[in-house]
Design a protein around this nucleic acid. Structure first.
Lengths: 202, 202
DNA sequence: TGTACATCAGTGAACGCGCGTTCACTGATGTAC
DNA sequence: TGTACATCAGTGAACGCGCGTTCACTGATGTAC
């Protein structure tokens, strides 16, 4: 498991990374590890080990572990936001685009369990390192824009706000229940729940 | 923080617990610690410390830490189930009883953040220690009973199933978003989202 | 009533572990003269 | 073109920490005769 003598390292004999590539490599490795939903105990030392570098080397690029995790959360939020926008556009916007973002929300969570949890827990720590919370919020502001476009013009701001929150809660809850294994992580079930929901059409 | 010389211990000079009370005391202490949402890193040693007993004493009552956590999850599931039933009955059953269980669901999570997470993560480990997953499931089977009673008779089994899942997801998502600090943990907001939902009345 | 013995809930020292972080260091790269 | 020097990304040993778990033990309680 911890053998670093695989083909990747054979191609690049000893130090695989130069000139600031380490940051990117560590983040890439971190995102990979965060795909495993088993545990969120991604340790700085393990990341360094997997990348083929001493643990202390990471301190050249991140002041501490917390900063590393924030960077990972930020990278996750970027991926997430991009996928949300792609899903919306690909479905042609509107109500079906909105539903598509819901499906993409759940599928992203299932594909990146630990990363998803990390991203979601970042608002808590926002005070300690501003910026990453904002990134997630920006990804989520898409939700509010979409809900605004979908609701009938007669809807009040409060109605829109509650509607957006309902949609978010439904999709977030479905994602978490599936992540936690309380509900089978079944693709067709995602479609069923989201398509059957009358949330967009209050 | 770790002084054990407070009044509680003055009243009961050295060994506070006898004859199997330790198990109950540890669980009570554990449930208290799990109310703090800060971290789920409740350690066996810390629990023993807070109860005023050596860490190894716990091994008289639990084979290992995992068993301890399972016991805590089980106790949590019992509390949760009782509160759900109380909420349903107190609101007079039916649709308004159903909505009441939804509100109680979110409020339980907010009142016991780490416990709620522990309970929800137990299905994963069900294989390693059967029984606790079942307890949670029994608490949740209430949900299915209620949804069955609420849906119109014309509804198919699939409709009922999807409806139950929607309701569960909505309420679970709202709870998690509030726990994670993504949405203000506002009592009136809980009411708004749940009462405005048309889930029960598909 | 008194003695011998088993039971069993608790103690405290010790273990090995992986962690985040610090420290003084090395050695390659680029720049100034 | 060559020498002197600063920069800076990396190394590896070492730190203190709290953890879960083991071990041999102690001392009170209850039971048998």
């Amino acid at each position: 498991m911890k053998s670093n003598d695989n083909s990747v390292n054979i191609k690049l004999p000893k130090n695989t990374y130069h000139h600031g590539d380490l940051r990117a490599a560590v983040i890439a490795e971190g995102l990979m590890r965060l795909k495993s939903g088993v545990l969120d105990d991604v340790s700085l030392r393990e990341l360094a080990r997997n990348v083929g570098v001493s643990a202390t080397a990471l301190y050249r690029h991140f002041p501490d572990k917390n900063a590393l995790m924030s960077a990972l959360a930020g990278a996750g939020a970027d991926m997430f936001g991009a996928e949300q926008r792609r899903a919306f556009a690909q479905a042609g916007g509107g109500q079906s685009g909105f539903n598509a973002t819901g499906r993409a929300y759940v599928r992203f969570a299932l594909a990146n369990p630990a990363l998803f949890r990390l991203m979601m827990s970042c608002k808590d720590r926002q005070a300690t390192s501003p910026g990453k919370g904002a990134q997630i919020n920006s990804a989520l502001s898409l939700l509010h824009e979409n809900i605004a476009a979908i609701f009938p013009q007669s809807a009040s701001d409060d109605q829109r706000r509650v509607g957006a929150l309902q949609a978010w809660a439904l999709v977030h809850g479905l994602a978490m229940l599936m992540l936690e294994g309380q509900v089978p992580a079944d693709d067709s079930l995602i479609d069923l729940v989201i398509d059957a929901s009358k949330l967009g059409a209050l």
